[in-house]
Write a protein that binds this DNA or RNA. Structure first.
Lengths: 110, 110
DNA sequence: CAGATAATTACGAATATGGTTAACTATTTC
DNA sequence: GAAATAGTTAACCATATTCGTAATTATCTG
């Protein structure tokens, strides 16, 4: 009944540092070190955030083609598909509630 | 630069019990007690989850019109507006990255 | 091969989160 | 007014997150 993918996505996005990373990555891919400096946290802290983002499926890593010490992180295109679906469902159900409510008003006003 | 409203929305949705509550509330409003039983947790635990959901703006509370001991919780209609906006922004920026990449391919293939 | 560099993993400490039971408040019912 | 009911707040405990420093791995450069 619960959605593990959605849970992880939301848990990943709930942390302010990690959301900052996503905000940066949606502009363009970044190196791990750049992200640490931009977020003003230590390299190890960022490394761990990147791990949880990777495990949540929001982000993917690959190595720089010329210097394979540096790791490039990029946002995965379909990253938030599940979240968007869930939001759309919520909207749909909300619309249903609204029309039910209108029908109720019709009935009671008679 | 950070968005406190969005932070709280995401933090609220990140907990599985709270997301379960939202899933229930998008069907119809519920009493506090109903929610506790549906989620299989104690009343106090649910009460605190409802508090955080209220503070995040996702949910609102009012009293039953005939028995003001019971509290009715309902999903707020504009609850996730900010989140939807953020997702739309992300999509837009990703599309931009994609077209930039295509342009890059054009250039390098020449 | 001997640094230097990019990033990760290991570890211990601080803080936050979530759960339960017990006590409390407010309201309804008899 | 006394007992019952709905729900919240208080107090306490267990677990999970997150951080920074130090140690480690892998790669590049001279």
């Amino acid at each position: 009944m619960s959605a593990p993918g959605l849970d992880r996505t939301l848990a990943a996005l709930a942390d302010p540092h990690r959301r900052r990373v996503v905000d940066l990555l949606r502009e363009r891919p970044h190196r791990a070190g750049e992200l640490a400096q931009a977020a003003r946290i230590s390299f190890p802290a960022m490394s761990r955030h990147l791990r949880t983002l990777r495990k949540s499926g929001l982000v993917e890593e690959d190595r720089d083609e010329f210097d394979s010490r540096v790791r490039i992180y990029r946002l995965r295109p379909d990253a938030m598909a599940e979240l968007k679906t869930w939001l759309a469902e919520t909207d749909a159900l909300w619309a249903r509630q609204l029309s039910a409510f209108k029908a109720h008003l019709q009935k009671t006003s008679k």
